[in-house]
Design a protein around this nucleic acid. Structure first.
Length: 264
DNA sequence: ATGGCTACGTACCGTAGA
C-alpha cells in the first residue's frame, strides 16, 4: 500500500490540460498540486479532472498565478492564500486530504519569482516568504503529517543549479532566498529529494530559450518537503523529465514522492 | 550579445516568467 504525491508547475492549464491529462493517465498519483494555472476558478476544467477520477480544490486567478490540489477522496479545511496577509495574487492552497496513510495536511504553493535583488518584486518575495513561514509553522503545530510542495523559485543550494558560480547572487540564488528555505527546514521539514542518493545535475525547470533542456541548463526549484512524522514513510522521490520532452511542454517537470508503511 | 522561448492581454508589442 502506497500513496504518491506530485507537484507540477503547468504554466497555464488553459494550454497544458492535454499534457496534464496524458501525464495523469501514465502517473495515477493520489494527489497532484499544480501551480500557475493562469485561469479563474470558473474556467477550471473540473469535468475533465473528474473524468480521470479526481476532485479538485481550486484557487484560481486570470492571467497569472493560480493553484489547485487534485485528490482522490475527501478534502476539508481548505484555506486559500496566507492567513493574515492580504495578497492580491493566488499563490497558496492548503487542505487536509484523507489517504490510506491517514490524513495529510497539504500546502501547495507558487512562490514569488522576485525578478532581481533590489526590485519591488524581490521585496515582495521576501515579505511573502515571511508570511509563508508563519503559515507553515502554524500548520505543523496543528497537524503531524504535513507536506509543503510547489514551485519554490529558490535553489536551496549550489547543487540545485546548473551554474551556481555564474549565477551566484542572482534571482533564485541569493542568500536571502536560501535563508528563507533554510528557515523552513528549521521547522523540521525535510527536502524529500535529498533523502536519497540522486544523480548530479538533476533539475526541475529549464529555460525555454538557449536550448536549456537539451543542454540540461536547469534549476531544481520545485520541491516536496515533508514533516518528521512522514519521514519514516518516505520511500522515494524523483523528478519526471518525460513531459518536458513532449510537444508544447511546461518549462517545469513534475516532482513526485511515494509514501508507504515501512514494513509493507 | 544578457538575447534566444512561451503565455497573456488586446496586441500586432509590452509584460512576465525564472
Amino acid at each position: 500500500m502506497s500513496v504518491t504525491l506530485a507537484t507540477w508547475n503547468v504554466n497555464s492549464l488553459n494550454v497544458r490540460l492535454p499534457q496534464v491529462q496524458q501525464w495523469l493517465q501514465a502517473n495515477p498519483v493520489d494527489v497532484l498540486g499544480m501551480q500557475e494555472l493562469k485561469l479563474p476558478d470558473e474556467r477550471f476544467p473540473l469535468d475533465a479532472v473528474r473524468e480521470q477520477g479526481y476532485e479538485a480544490e481550486v484557487f484560481g486567478q486570470a492571467t497569472y498565478n493560480g493553484v489547485a490540489l487534485l485528490h482522490r477522496s475527501q478534502a476539508r479545511d481548505v484555506v486559500r492564500n496566507l492567513p493574515g496577509y492580504a495578497d492580491a495574487q493566488s499563490r497558496v492552497i492548503t487542505a487536509t486530504v484523507a489517504t490510506p496513510l491517514g490524513d495529510i495536511r497539504l500546502i501547495n504553493a507558487y512562490f514569488v519569482n522576485g525578478q532581481a535583488p533590489g526590485t519591488d518584486k524581490f521585496a515582495y518575495k521576501n515579505e511573502w516568504l515571511t508570511h509563508l513561514h508563519a503559515h507553515v509553522q502554524a500548520q505543523m503545530q496543528a497537524h503531524a503529517q504535513v507536506v509543503l510542495m510547489g514551485d519554490f523559485n529558490i535553489t536551496a543550494e549550489d547543487a540545485d543549479s546548473w551554474d551556481p558560480d555564474g549565477l551566484r547572487g542572482t534571482i533564485h540564488h541569493t542568500p536571502e532566498e536560501r535563508q528563507a528555505f533554510a528557515r523552513l527546514l528549521e521547522l523540521g521539514l525535510v527536502d524529500a529529494f535529498r533523502q536519497f542518493p540522486q544523480p548530479e545535475k538533476t533539475f526541475s525547470w529549464w529555460d525555454y530559450r538557449m536550448l536549456g533542456f537539451q543542454k540540461n541548463r536547469g534549476l531544481r526549484i520545485d520541491y516536496i518537503l515533508i514533516s518528521p512524522a512522514l519521514r519514516p514513510l518516505l520511500r522515494r522521490c524523483w523528478i519526471d523529465r518525460a513531459p518536458r520532452k513532449w510537444p508544447k511542454p511546461s518549462d517545469h517537470a513534475p516532482v513526485l514522492i511515494e509514501l508507504g508503511q515501512p514494513d509493507s
